[in-house]
Design a protein around this nucleic acid. Sequence first.
DNA 1: ACAAAAGTGTTTTCGGTACACCCATGG
DNA 2: CCATGGGTGTACCGAAAACACTTTTGT
Lengths: 225, 225
Amino acid sequence: MDRAYKEVQQITLAVDCIIFGFNNNQLEVLLIHRGFEPEKERWSLMGGFVGNREDLDAAAHRILHDLSGLEDVYMEQVRTFGKADRDPYERVVSTTYSALILKEQYKAELIAQYRARWFSIDDLPNLIFDHKQMIVSALNRLRRRVRTVPIVFNLLPKKFTLPQLQLLYEGILGEELDKRNFRKKLNTMDFLVKLDEKDMSGSRKGAYYYQFDENKYNRTMNFNI
Amino acid sequence: MDRAYKEVQQITLAVDCIIFGFNNNQLEVLLIHRGFEPEKERWSLMGGFVGNREDLDAAAHRILHDLSGLEDVYMEQVRTFGKADRDPYERVVSTTYSALILKEQYKAELIAQYRARWFSIDDLPNLIFDHKQMIVSALNRLRRRVRTVPIVFNLLPKKFTLPQLQLLYEGILGEELDKRNFRKKLNTMDFLVKLDEKDMSGSRKGAYYYQFDENKYNRTMNFNI
DNA sequence: ACAAAAGTGTTTTCGGTACACCCATGG
DNA sequence: CCATGGGTGTACCGAAAACACTTTTGT
Protein backbone atom coordinates (compact mmCIF):
# COMPACT_ATOMS: atom_id res chain seq x y z
CA MET A 1 0.00 0.00 0.00
CA ASP A 2 2.96 2.31 0.00
CA ARG A 3 3.46 4.79 -2.80
CA ALA A 4 6.80 3.42 -3.93
CA TYR A 5 5.10 0.20 -4.97
CA LYS A 6 2.63 1.97 -7.10
CA GLU A 7 5.08 4.34 -8.70
CA VAL A 8 6.74 1.53 -10.57
CA GLN A 9 3.49 -0.05 -11.70
CA GLN A 10 3.56 -0.61 -15.44
CA ILE A 11 0.15 -1.88 -16.31
CA THR A 12 -1.89 -0.51 -19.16
CA LEU A 13 -5.61 -0.29 -18.78
CA ALA A 14 -7.79 -1.01 -21.78
CA VAL A 15 -11.44 -1.41 -22.64
CA ASP A 16 -12.92 -3.96 -25.03
CA CYS A 17 -16.44 -3.76 -26.40
CA ILE A 18 -18.68 -6.70 -27.10
CA ILE A 19 -21.09 -5.20 -29.58
CA PHE A 20 -24.30 -7.13 -30.00
CA GLY A 21 -26.73 -6.73 -32.84
CA PHE A 22 -29.74 -8.59 -34.10
CA ASN A 23 -29.58 -9.49 -37.76
CA ASN A 24 -31.03 -12.22 -39.94
CA ASN A 25 -32.99 -13.38 -36.93
CA GLN A 26 -29.72 -14.12 -35.18
CA LEU A 27 -27.80 -12.57 -32.37
CA GLU A 28 -24.53 -11.32 -33.76
CA VAL A 29 -21.32 -9.72 -32.56
CA LEU A 30 -19.34 -7.08 -34.38
CA LEU A 31 -15.65 -7.91 -34.74
CA ILE A 32 -12.83 -6.07 -36.41
CA HIS A 33 -10.20 -7.48 -38.68
CA ARG A 34 -7.01 -6.06 -37.29
CA GLY A 35 -5.09 -4.01 -39.79
CA PHE A 36 -2.38 -3.26 -37.23
CA GLU A 37 0.17 -5.05 -35.11
CA PRO A 38 0.21 -7.00 -32.97
CA GLU A 39 -1.86 -9.90 -34.25
CA LYS A 40 -2.38 -8.16 -37.56
CA GLU A 41 -4.95 -9.77 -39.84
CA ARG A 42 -6.71 -11.58 -37.04
CA TRP A 43 -10.16 -10.96 -35.61
CA SER A 44 -10.68 -9.17 -32.34
CA LEU A 45 -13.08 -7.11 -30.34
CA MET A 46 -13.00 -3.37 -30.76
CA GLY A 47 -10.85 -2.01 -27.98
CA GLY A 48 -8.63 0.81 -26.91
CA PHE A 49 -6.77 2.35 -24.02
CA VAL A 50 -8.26 4.47 -21.29
CA GLY A 51 -7.36 8.14 -21.21
CA ASN A 52 -5.68 9.58 -18.15
CA ARG A 53 -8.59 11.77 -17.24
CA GLU A 54 -11.29 9.72 -18.83
CA ASP A 55 -13.92 7.79 -16.89
CA LEU A 56 -13.79 4.10 -17.64
CA ASP A 57 -17.37 4.16 -18.92
CA ALA A 58 -16.56 7.12 -21.13
CA ALA A 59 -13.66 5.24 -22.67
CA ALA A 60 -16.03 2.43 -23.61
CA HIS A 61 -18.43 4.88 -25.24
CA ARG A 62 -15.63 6.60 -27.09
CA ILE A 63 -14.32 3.35 -28.47
CA LEU A 64 -17.76 2.25 -29.53
CA HIS A 65 -18.32 5.59 -31.17
CA ASP A 66 -15.08 5.31 -33.11
CA LEU A 67 -16.26 2.11 -34.68
CA SER A 68 -19.96 2.71 -35.08
CA GLY A 69 -20.41 6.43 -35.20
CA LEU A 70 -23.12 5.97 -32.58
CA GLU A 71 -23.64 7.93 -29.39
CA ASP A 72 -25.96 7.18 -26.49
CA VAL A 73 -25.72 3.48 -26.94
CA TYR A 74 -26.83 1.15 -24.21
CA MET A 75 -23.74 -0.29 -22.52
CA GLU A 76 -23.01 -2.22 -19.38
CA GLN A 77 -19.73 -3.13 -17.81
CA VAL A 78 -19.24 -6.88 -17.81
CA ARG A 79 -16.01 -7.78 -16.07
CA THR A 80 -12.29 -7.14 -15.98
CA PHE A 81 -9.76 -9.53 -17.44
CA GLY A 82 -6.50 -9.31 -15.61
CA LYS A 83 -4.37 -12.38 -16.16
CA ALA A 84 -0.74 -11.31 -16.28
CA ASP A 85 -0.13 -13.14 -19.55
CA ARG A 86 -3.45 -12.59 -21.29
CA ASP A 87 -1.75 -10.33 -23.81
CA PRO A 88 1.61 -11.91 -24.64
CA TYR A 89 3.11 -8.64 -25.82
CA GLU A 90 2.67 -6.40 -22.84
CA ARG A 91 0.81 -6.17 -19.58
CA VAL A 92 -2.68 -4.99 -20.34
CA VAL A 93 -5.68 -5.31 -18.08
CA SER A 94 -8.94 -4.94 -19.92
CA THR A 95 -12.43 -4.14 -18.75
CA THR A 96 -15.18 -5.37 -21.05
CA TYR A 97 -18.39 -3.59 -21.88
CA SER A 98 -21.34 -5.05 -23.66
CA ALA A 99 -23.22 -2.80 -26.09
CA LEU A 100 -26.64 -3.33 -27.64
CA ILE A 101 -27.01 -1.62 -30.94
CA LEU A 102 -29.32 -1.39 -33.88
CA LYS A 103 -27.61 -2.66 -36.95
CA GLU A 104 -29.36 -0.25 -39.28
CA GLN A 105 -27.91 2.75 -37.55
CA TYR A 106 -24.27 1.92 -38.07
CA LYS A 107 -22.09 4.04 -40.18
CA ALA A 108 -21.16 1.62 -42.89
CA GLU A 109 -18.07 3.59 -43.87
CA LEU A 110 -16.61 3.18 -40.38
CA ILE A 111 -17.33 -0.51 -40.40
CA ALA A 112 -15.55 -0.73 -43.73
CA GLN A 113 -12.63 1.32 -42.46
CA TYR A 114 -12.06 -1.09 -39.59
CA ARG A 115 -12.81 -4.02 -41.84
CA ALA A 116 -15.42 -5.04 -39.33
CA ARG A 117 -17.90 -7.84 -39.78
CA TRP A 118 -20.88 -9.26 -38.00
CA PHE A 119 -20.61 -12.84 -36.76
CA SER A 120 -23.36 -15.03 -35.43
CA ILE A 121 -22.64 -15.85 -31.80
CA ASP A 122 -22.53 -19.52 -32.55
CA ASP A 123 -20.19 -19.18 -35.47
CA LEU A 124 -17.31 -17.08 -34.23
CA PRO A 125 -13.93 -16.98 -35.91
CA ASN A 126 -10.68 -17.48 -34.04
CA LEU A 127 -10.05 -14.50 -31.86
CA ILE A 128 -6.93 -13.02 -30.32
CA PHE A 129 -5.99 -13.36 -26.67
CA ASP A 130 -8.95 -14.00 -24.39
CA HIS A 131 -11.52 -12.27 -26.59
CA LYS A 132 -13.52 -15.44 -27.03
CA GLN A 133 -13.95 -15.72 -23.25
CA MET A 134 -14.91 -12.08 -23.14
CA ILE A 135 -17.73 -12.73 -25.59
CA VAL A 136 -18.86 -15.78 -23.66
CA SER A 137 -19.05 -13.90 -20.38
CA ALA A 138 -20.85 -10.97 -22.00
CA LEU A 139 -23.32 -13.35 -23.59
CA ASN A 140 -23.97 -15.12 -20.30
CA ARG A 141 -24.60 -11.82 -18.64
CA LEU A 142 -26.90 -10.74 -21.46
CA ARG A 143 -28.89 -13.96 -21.17
CA ARG A 144 -29.50 -13.31 -17.51
CA ARG A 145 -30.25 -9.63 -17.92
CA VAL A 146 -32.78 -9.79 -20.75
CA ARG A 147 -35.11 -11.81 -18.55
CA THR A 148 -35.48 -9.16 -15.88
CA VAL A 149 -34.61 -5.80 -17.43
CA PRO A 150 -36.15 -4.30 -20.58
CA ILE A 151 -32.92 -3.92 -22.51
CA VAL A 152 -33.71 -5.95 -25.62
CA PHE A 153 -35.53 -3.00 -27.11
CA ASN A 154 -32.13 -1.47 -27.76
CA LEU A 155 -31.65 -4.17 -30.38
CA LEU A 156 -34.88 -3.36 -32.21
CA PRO A 157 -36.24 -0.35 -34.05
CA LYS A 158 -38.72 1.83 -32.18
CA LYS A 159 -41.55 -0.01 -33.93
CA PHE A 160 -41.29 -3.77 -33.97
CA THR A 161 -43.60 -6.74 -34.25
CA LEU A 162 -44.15 -9.50 -31.72
CA PRO A 163 -42.76 -12.20 -34.01
CA GLN A 164 -39.61 -10.08 -34.28
CA LEU A 165 -39.37 -9.67 -30.53
CA GLN A 166 -39.83 -13.37 -30.00
CA LEU A 167 -37.17 -14.25 -32.55
CA LEU A 168 -34.82 -11.88 -30.80
CA TYR A 169 -35.40 -13.56 -27.45
CA GLU A 170 -34.94 -16.93 -29.02
CA GLY A 171 -31.69 -15.77 -30.57
CA ILE A 172 -30.36 -14.43 -27.31
CA LEU A 173 -31.48 -17.31 -25.12
CA GLY A 174 -30.63 -19.95 -27.67
CA GLU A 175 -33.91 -21.79 -27.19
CA GLU A 176 -37.36 -21.78 -28.72
CA LEU A 177 -40.26 -20.17 -26.93
CA ASP A 178 -43.95 -20.93 -27.07
CA LYS A 179 -45.71 -18.20 -29.02
CA ARG A 180 -48.83 -18.14 -26.88
CA ASN A 181 -47.04 -18.19 -23.55
CA PHE A 182 -44.66 -15.52 -24.72
CA ARG A 183 -47.45 -13.19 -25.75
CA LYS A 184 -49.48 -13.93 -22.65
CA LYS A 185 -46.56 -12.88 -20.47
CA LEU A 186 -46.03 -9.69 -22.41
CA ASN A 187 -49.69 -8.88 -22.03
CA THR A 188 -49.78 -9.31 -18.28
CA MET A 189 -46.87 -6.92 -17.89
CA ASP A 190 -48.29 -3.91 -19.53
CA PHE A 191 -45.57 -1.88 -21.22
CA LEU A 192 -46.10 -2.55 -24.91
CA VAL A 193 -48.31 -0.32 -26.99
CA LYS A 194 -49.99 -1.79 -30.04
CA LEU A 195 -50.01 0.50 -33.04
CA ASP A 196 -52.59 0.59 -35.80
CA GLU A 197 -49.97 -0.16 -38.36
CA LYS A 198 -48.86 -3.48 -39.71
CA ASP A 199 -45.58 -4.78 -41.00
CA MET A 200 -46.53 -6.48 -44.25
CA SER A 201 -43.03 -7.54 -45.21
CA GLY A 202 -42.94 -10.86 -43.43
CA SER A 203 -46.29 -12.40 -44.25
CA ARG A 204 -49.53 -12.09 -46.18
CA LYS A 205 -51.50 -11.33 -43.09
CA GLY A 206 -49.10 -8.78 -41.69
CA ALA A 207 -47.99 -8.34 -38.07
CA TYR A 208 -48.97 -5.41 -35.91
CA TYR A 209 -46.27 -3.02 -34.83
CA TYR A 210 -45.69 -2.42 -31.15
CA GLN A 211 -43.69 0.09 -29.16
CA PHE A 212 -42.07 -0.14 -25.77
CA ASP A 213 -43.57 2.47 -23.45
CA GLU A 214 -41.00 3.49 -20.89
CA ASN A 215 -43.47 5.38 -18.76
CA LYS A 216 -45.79 2.44 -18.48
CA TYR A 217 -42.85 0.28 -17.54
CA ASN A 218 -41.67 2.73 -14.90
CA ARG A 219 -45.01 2.61 -13.17
CA THR A 220 -44.58 -1.01 -12.22
CA MET A 221 -40.95 -1.76 -13.02
CA ASN A 222 -41.95 -5.35 -13.37
CA PHE A 223 -40.33 -7.28 -16.11
CA ASN A 224 -39.89 -10.98 -16.27
CA ILE A 225 -39.60 -13.07 -19.41
CA MET B 1 -5.27 2.14 -30.56
CA ASP B 2 -1.81 3.37 -31.40
CA ARG B 3 1.06 2.71 -29.04
CA ALA B 4 1.95 6.33 -28.45
CA TYR B 5 -1.38 6.85 -26.75
CA LYS B 6 -0.82 4.03 -24.36
CA GLU B 7 2.76 4.89 -23.57
CA VAL B 8 1.76 8.01 -21.76
CA GLN B 9 -1.01 6.36 -19.83
CA GLN B 10 -0.68 7.12 -16.13
CA ILE B 11 -3.36 5.12 -14.44
CA THR B 12 -2.74 3.00 -11.41
CA LEU B 13 -4.62 -0.23 -11.04
CA ALA B 14 -5.76 -1.31 -7.60
CA VAL B 15 -7.85 -4.00 -6.00
CA ASP B 16 -10.23 -3.54 -3.08
CA CYS B 17 -11.65 -6.41 -1.08
CA ILE B 18 -15.10 -6.56 0.41
CA ILE B 19 -14.65 -9.14 3.12
CA PHE B 20 -17.86 -10.65 4.38
CA GLY B 21 -18.20 -12.63 7.58
CA PHE B 22 -21.07 -13.95 9.63
CA ASN B 23 -20.96 -12.97 13.27
CA ASN B 24 -23.51 -12.43 16.00
CA ASN B 25 -26.12 -13.71 13.57
CA GLN B 26 -25.37 -10.77 11.33
CA LEU B 27 -23.65 -10.29 8.03
CA GLU B 28 -20.61 -8.14 8.59
CA VAL B 29 -17.85 -6.51 6.60
CA LEU B 30 -14.25 -6.15 7.67
CA LEU B 31 -12.89 -2.60 7.37
CA ILE B 32 -9.55 -1.12 8.22
CA HIS B 33 -8.84 2.05 10.07
CA ARG B 34 -6.27 3.76 7.92
CA GLY B 35 -3.05 4.48 9.72
CA PHE B 36 -1.54 6.02 6.60
CA GLU B 37 -2.08 8.89 4.23
CA PRO B 38 -4.09 9.80 2.35
CA GLU B 39 -7.31 9.85 4.35
CA LYS B 40 -5.47 8.78 7.47
CA GLU B 41 -7.69 7.79 10.40
CA ARG B 42 -10.70 7.07 8.23
CA TRP B 43 -12.32 3.73 7.47
CA SER B 44 -11.79 1.96 4.18
CA LEU B 45 -11.80 -1.38 2.49
CA MET B 46 -8.59 -3.36 2.45
CA GLY B 47 -6.92 -2.64 -0.85
CA GLY B 48 -3.64 -2.49 -2.67
CA PHE B 49 -1.98 -2.12 -6.02
CA VAL B 50 -1.61 -4.81 -8.60
CA GLY B 51 1.89 -6.13 -9.27
CA ASN B 52 3.35 -5.86 -12.74
CA ARG B 53 3.41 -9.59 -13.28
CA GLU B 54 0.60 -10.49 -10.96
CA ASP B 55 -2.77 -11.79 -12.10
CA LEU B 56 -5.58 -9.53 -10.99
CA ASP B 57 -7.17 -12.39 -9.04
CA ALA B 58 -3.84 -13.13 -7.39
CA ALA B 59 -3.55 -9.53 -6.27
CA ALA B 60 -6.92 -9.82 -4.55
CA HIS B 61 -5.86 -13.00 -2.79
CA ARG B 62 -2.57 -11.47 -1.73
CA ILE B 63 -4.27 -8.42 -0.28
CA LEU B 64 -6.78 -10.53 1.57
CA HIS B 65 -3.98 -12.70 2.89
CA ASP B 66 -2.09 -9.69 4.16
CA LEU B 67 -5.03 -8.69 6.30
CA SER B 68 -6.43 -12.02 7.35
CA GLY B 69 -3.59 -14.48 7.11
CA LEU B 70 -5.95 -16.73 5.16
CA GLU B 71 -5.27 -18.58 1.93
CA ASP B 72 -7.70 -20.36 -0.35
CA VAL B 73 -10.52 -18.05 0.48
CA TYR B 74 -13.59 -17.95 -1.72
CA MET B 75 -13.48 -14.77 -3.81
CA GLU B 76 -15.33 -13.40 -6.77
CA GLN B 77 -14.65 -10.35 -8.84
CA VAL B 78 -17.47 -7.87 -8.50
CA ARG B 79 -16.84 -4.91 -10.76
CA THR B 80 -14.38 -2.22 -11.66
CA PHE B 81 -14.70 1.36 -10.50
CA GLY B 82 -13.16 3.72 -12.97
CA LYS B 83 -14.43 7.25 -12.55
CA ALA B 84 -11.61 9.66 -13.26
CA ASP B 85 -12.11 11.51 -10.00
CA ARG B 86 -13.07 8.66 -7.70
CA ASP B 87 -9.79 9.11 -5.84
CA PRO B 88 -9.12 12.84 -5.54
CA TYR B 89 -5.38 12.38 -5.05
CA GLU B 90 -4.41 10.44 -8.12
CA ARG B 91 -5.87 8.42 -10.95
CA VAL B 92 -6.60 4.96 -9.62
CA VAL B 93 -8.93 2.43 -11.18
CA SER B 94 -9.97 -0.26 -8.76
CA THR B 95 -11.41 -3.71 -9.28
CA THR B 96 -13.41 -5.03 -6.35
CA TYR B 97 -13.48 -8.59 -5.10
CA SER B 98 -15.87 -10.02 -2.60
CA ALA B 99 -14.53 -12.58 -0.15
CA LEU B 100 -16.47 -14.92 2.10
CA ILE B 101 -14.57 -15.89 5.19
CA LEU B 102 -15.04 -17.67 8.46
CA LYS B 103 -14.49 -15.24 11.27
CA GLU B 104 -13.00 -17.80 13.61
CA GLN B 105 -10.10 -18.42 11.27
CA TYR B 106 -8.73 -14.91 11.20
CA LYS B 107 -5.42 -14.07 12.58
CA ALA B 108 -6.34 -11.64 15.30
CA GLU B 109 -2.90 -10.09 15.40
CA LEU B 110 -3.15 -9.02 11.77
CA ILE B 111 -6.54 -7.53 12.35
CA ALA B 112 -5.10 -5.61 15.26
CA GLN B 113 -2.14 -4.47 13.22
CA TYR B 114 -4.39 -2.95 10.59
CA ARG B 115 -6.75 -1.68 13.25
CA ALA B 116 -9.48 -3.53 11.44
CA ARG B 117 -13.00 -3.98 12.72
CA TRP B 118 -16.12 -5.83 11.74
CA PHE B 119 -19.16 -3.75 10.91
CA SER B 120 -22.69 -4.93 10.43
CA ILE B 121 -23.74 -4.25 6.88
CA ASP B 122 -26.54 -2.03 8.02
CA ASP B 123 -24.39 0.01 10.34
CA LEU B 124 -21.41 1.07 8.28
CA PRO B 125 -19.17 3.99 9.22
CA ASN B 126 -18.26 6.76 6.82
CA LEU B 127 -15.93 5.39 4.21
CA ILE B 128 -13.39 6.98 1.91
CA PHE B 129 -13.92 7.56 -1.79
CA ASP B 130 -16.51 5.25 -3.35
CA HIS B 131 -15.98 2.42 -0.91
CA LYS B 132 -19.55 2.58 0.29
CA GLN B 133 -20.79 2.00 -3.25
CA MET B 134 -18.35 -0.85 -3.57
CA ILE B 135 -19.85 -2.55 -0.56
CA VAL B 136 -23.36 -1.96 -1.84
CA SER B 137 -22.62 -3.50 -5.21
CA ALA B 138 -20.83 -6.45 -3.62
CA LEU B 139 -23.76 -7.00 -1.31
CA ASN B 140 -26.25 -6.86 -4.15
CA ARG B 141 -24.23 -9.40 -6.04
CA LEU B 142 -23.97 -11.61 -2.98
CA ARG B 143 -27.72 -11.47 -2.47
CA ARG B 144 -28.28 -12.68 -6.00
CA ARG B 145 -25.57 -15.32 -5.90
CA VAL B 146 -26.47 -17.03 -2.64
CA ARG B 147 -29.82 -18.00 -4.09
CA THR B 148 -28.41 -20.02 -6.96
CA VAL B 149 -24.87 -21.06 -6.05
CA PRO B 150 -23.81 -22.89 -2.89
CA ILE B 151 -21.36 -20.28 -1.66
CA VAL B 152 -22.79 -19.51 1.78
CA PHE B 153 -21.04 -22.53 3.20
CA ASN B 154 -17.84 -20.52 3.02
CA LEU B 155 -19.25 -18.38 5.79
CA LEU B 156 -19.91 -21.33 8.08
CA PRO B 157 -17.78 -23.98 9.75
CA LYS B 158 -17.73 -27.40 8.09
CA LYS B 159 -20.37 -28.57 10.53
CA PHE B 160 -23.29 -26.26 11.02
CA THR B 161 -26.90 -26.48 12.11
CA LEU B 162 -29.99 -25.60 10.10
CA PRO B 163 -30.96 -22.75 12.43
CA GLN B 164 -27.49 -21.31 11.84
CA LEU B 165 -27.83 -21.66 8.09
CA GLN B 166 -31.21 -20.02 8.12
CA LEU B 167 -29.97 -17.10 10.23
CA LEU B 168 -27.14 -16.64 7.78
CA TYR B 169 -29.53 -16.48 4.84
CA GLU B 170 -31.71 -14.06 6.70
CA GLY B 171 -28.70 -11.91 7.46
CA ILE B 172 -27.59 -11.85 3.84
CA LEU B 173 -30.99 -11.35 2.28
CA GLY B 174 -32.16 -8.93 4.93
CA GLU B 175 -35.51 -10.64 5.37
CA GLU B 176 -37.03 -13.37 7.50
CA LEU B 177 -37.64 -16.81 6.10
CA ASP B 178 -40.18 -19.41 7.04
CA LYS B 179 -38.47 -22.24 8.89
CA ARG B 180 -40.56 -25.03 7.39
CA ASN B 181 -40.34 -23.79 3.83
CA PHE B 182 -36.64 -23.21 4.17
CA ARG B 183 -36.01 -26.75 5.36
CA LYS B 184 -38.36 -28.24 2.81
CA LYS B 185 -36.40 -26.60 0.02
CA LEU B 186 -33.09 -27.80 1.38
CA ASN B 187 -34.48 -31.32 1.59
CA THR B 188 -35.69 -31.45 -1.98
CA MET B 189 -32.24 -30.46 -3.21
CA ASP B 190 -30.19 -33.18 -1.74
CA PHE B 191 -26.72 -31.94 -0.86
CA LEU B 192 -26.78 -31.67 2.91
CA VAL B 193 -25.68 -34.58 5.08
CA LYS B 194 -27.15 -34.88 8.54
CA LEU B 195 -24.63 -35.93 11.17
CA ASP B 196 -25.37 -37.89 14.33
CA GLU B 197 -24.01 -35.09 16.43
CA LYS B 198 -25.87 -32.19 17.94
CA ASP B 199 -24.91 -28.65 18.78
CA MET B 200 -26.13 -28.24 22.35
CA SER B 201 -24.91 -24.70 22.78
CA GLY B 202 -27.97 -22.90 21.49
CA SER B 203 -30.84 -24.74 23.09
CA ARG B 204 -31.90 -27.46 25.48
CA LYS B 205 -32.95 -29.78 22.76
CA GLY B 206 -29.87 -29.28 20.61
CA ALA B 207 -29.70 -28.91 16.84
CA TYR B 208 -28.30 -31.54 14.54
CA TYR B 209 -25.14 -30.72 12.67
CA TYR B 210 -25.13 -30.88 8.89
CA GLN B 211 -22.42 -30.80 6.27
CA PHE B 212 -22.47 -29.61 2.70
CA ASP B 213 -21.63 -32.52 0.40
CA GLU B 214 -19.95 -31.18 -2.69
CA ASN B 215 -20.18 -34.48 -4.58
CA LYS B 216 -23.89 -34.77 -4.03
CA TYR B 217 -24.26 -31.20 -5.21
CA ASN B 218 -22.19 -31.82 -8.32
CA ARG B 219 -24.44 -34.67 -9.39
CA THR B 220 -27.38 -32.35 -9.92
CA MET B 221 -25.86 -28.86 -9.72
CA ASN B 222 -29.26 -27.69 -8.71
CA PHE B 223 -29.41 -25.02 -6.07
CA ASN B 224 -32.19 -22.58 -5.53
CA ILE B 225 -33.07 -20.91 -2.25
C1' DA C 1 -58.16 -22.48 -53.21
C1' DC C 2 -54.11 -22.61 -50.84
C1' DA C 3 -49.84 -21.51 -48.67
C1' DA C 4 -47.69 -19.05 -44.97
C1' DA C 5 -47.31 -16.54 -41.11
C1' DA C 6 -50.23 -14.07 -37.36
C1' DG C 7 -53.07 -14.42 -33.79
C1' DT C 8 -55.73 -16.43 -29.82
C1' DG C 9 -57.49 -19.70 -24.52
C1' DT C 10 -57.74 -23.48 -21.66
C1' DT C 11 -56.01 -27.11 -18.81
C1' DT C 12 -52.53 -29.10 -16.07
C1' DT C 13 -48.63 -29.07 -13.26
C1' DC C 14 -45.45 -27.53 -10.07
C1' DG C 15 -43.19 -24.62 -7.09
C1' DG C 16 -44.07 -20.90 -3.56
C1' DT C 17 -46.28 -19.42 0.37
C1' DA C 18 -48.92 -19.44 4.49
C1' DC C 19 -49.71 -21.47 8.61
C1' DA C 20 -49.64 -24.26 14.13
C1' DC C 21 -48.37 -27.77 16.85
C1' DC C 22 -45.36 -31.37 19.14
C1' DC C 23 -40.56 -32.64 20.81
C1' DA C 24 -36.46 -32.91 23.62
C1' DT C 25 -33.90 -31.30 27.25
C1' DG C 26 -31.66 -28.64 31.19
C1' DG C 27 -32.82 -26.24 34.80
C1' DC D 1 -42.89 -29.22 35.27
C1' DC D 2 -41.87 -25.65 32.43
C1' DA D 3 -39.40 -22.60 29.41
C1' DT D 4 -36.77 -22.56 25.23
C1' DG D 5 -35.50 -23.34 20.84
C1' DG D 6 -35.70 -27.55 17.37
C1' DG D 7 -38.29 -29.98 14.40
C1' DT D 8 -42.26 -31.42 11.30
C1' DG D 9 -46.82 -31.53 7.26
C1' DT D 10 -50.76 -29.72 4.72
C1' DA D 11 -53.72 -26.77 2.12
C1' DC D 12 -53.97 -23.04 -1.14
C1' DC D 13 -52.61 -20.12 -4.85
C1' DG D 14 -50.45 -18.37 -8.82
C1' DA D 15 -47.13 -18.70 -12.35
C1' DA D 16 -45.22 -21.74 -15.95
C1' DA D 17 -45.81 -25.14 -19.36
C1' DA D 18 -48.21 -27.87 -22.65
C1' DC D 19 -51.07 -27.85 -26.29
C1' DA D 20 -54.27 -26.84 -31.65
C1' DC D 21 -57.05 -24.25 -34.28
C1' DT D 22 -58.72 -19.92 -36.78
C1' DT D 23 -57.59 -15.65 -39.40
C1' DT D 24 -55.79 -12.92 -43.06
C1' DT D 25 -54.33 -12.08 -47.57
C1' DG D 26 -51.28 -12.34 -51.82
C1' DT D 27 -50.76 -15.39 -55.34
